[in-house]
Amino acid sequence: MTDANAAGEILTAQHVMEYPYRRSLGPVLSAFFTGLRDRTILGARTRDGRVLVPPAEYDPETGEATGDLVEVGPAGTVTSWAWVHEPRDVHPLDRPFAFALVRLDGADSALLHTVVVDDKAGMRTGMRVEPRWRDETEGRIQDIECFVPEAGVA
């Protein structure tokens, strides 16, 4: 037994850690997720007029509370992207896709989400994309199934 140990047999155990968190939202994220359920995307306007998407409760540059929530997009521009050749189980898509930063029309910051195109050659920085909504929306970031190239744009 101890010889087997010395020979390098190491015991292993599979362990799964799960937390079934339910998170309360507060007024800003509540409005954002309610908007997603209703297929609109909201940003928060800072005191100096910039629009943050996803909306933040406070302007990260000044610490001041943000003001009105304004509707943005739904289309926008890819500002950076990463092509996932082999999706992981934790990813929302099971085929190759891009993680992308999308600056929605009317926003000054970019939303991190996914873009689906046929292959990597279909991706480029600056491309125009629009959300593809799930059939059933329930008020979560995954209500946007992914972004896809904007209809009618070459």
Partner: peptide, 8 residues
């Protein structure tokens, strides 16, 4: 929407 479920 007042809360969301985010399982880990």
């Amino acid at each position: 929407i007042q809360s969301i479920v985010t399982p880990v």
